[in-house]
């Protein structure tokens, strides 16, 4: 379609202009990150004398990284974030799929209320309940634990998961379940052995939607688990940089350490992530 847009000589110029614009914007999107990473490998002098230059043998230095490693427990924070994100993700997917199945498959007393009840969580940000959440966490004696964050993130992620998964499950052909019911398969087996495997594409979408806000969150780690023990990478970087504001090597190095894993994962999974996002957005 629109082949003509790119055919005639007049439009070829048009297409070049489009590429120029997109290229410029892509540069704007990536350059800041690139700048941080190249400067993280330079000496202080190198950083300030020529910020735009790549590190050379004269300016190369990993001093920042050494300092970050020595003065902060970066790997500890990293593993905390990993455990919290994956833990919450597992339960969001499992419990979300269970609720979605219950709501899309069975009609029972209060099922439409239940649907509305879950929908509230999509619209109203969970942060607004922070005052009460903190009190609950205190009363459960879970302050400064990974469990507290996992529980809150499950509650945060469930509504969207239920929404996406139930839309998807409603499209699974009735015949599949009915065939199983004719064979006297239990409702649990139908869910775990037929529905859950069929839901995989939507589960991927939910995973993408869930992981990013959890990994990047600053708010709940800040108010529920600011202590050293359960500190996440996002909070750790925030506090570390807060302390070493003027130490450019350390700041750049810690930012690089926070960005690079995301960058690598994105390079590997970008196709899945983008597909997951667009698939979910169709709904």
């Amino acid at each position: 379609m629109f082949s003509s847009l790119f055919n005639s000589s007049k439009n070829r110029g048009n297409s070049a202009f489009i590429h120029l614009f997109l290229l410029a914007y892509t540069l704007l999107a990536l350059f800041p990150v690139f700048l941080i990473i190249i400067n993280a490998f330079k000496t202080r002098k190198g950083i300030f004398n020529d910020p735009l230059a790549l590190p050379t043998s004269a300016t190369f230095s990993t001093k920042g990284f050494e300092k970050v490693m020595a003065n902060s427990d970066f790997f500890h924070y990293f593993s905390n974030s990993l455990i919290i994100t994956l833990g919450a993700l597992f339960f969001i997917l499992l419990l979300g799929a269970m609720i979605a199945w219950a709501l899309s498959e069975y009609k029972f007393f209060g099922s439409s209320f239940m649907r509305f009840f879950m929908a509230i969580g999509i619209i109203v940000p969970i942060r607004l309940g922070s005052v009460s959440i903190l009190e609950t966490i205190v009363s459960l004696d879970l302050v400064n634990t990974k469990t507290a964050l996992i529980l809150v993130y499950i509650a945060q992620g469930l509504p969207m998961a239920v929404f996406i998964l139930s839309e998807f499950m409603a499209q699974i052909p009735k015949e599949l379940k009915e065939a199983a019911r004719c064979d006297d398969v239990s409702e649990y087996k139908i869910f775990f052995q037929i529905i859950l495997p069929l839901t995989r594409p939507a589960i991927a979408t939910v995973a993408v939607f869930s992981i990013i806000p959890i990994w990047n969150d600053l708010w709940f780690p800040l108010i529920l688990a600011p202590g050293e023990e359960a500190r996440t990478v996002t909070l750790g970087v925030q506090q570390f940089i807060g302390q070493y504001v003027t130490d450019w090597n350390s700041v750049l190095a810690s930012l690089t350490l926070a960005v690079v894993p995301v960058l690598i994962l994105y390079m590997i999974f970008s196709k899945h992530i983008i597909r997951g996002l667009t698939a979910g957005a169709v709904k």
Binding site: G121, V131, S132, I133, L151, A155, L158
Partner: peptide
Amino acid sequence: IYTIFSAWP
């Protein structure tokens, strides 16, 4: 979990 940590708060 949703009720305790999101709806009720």
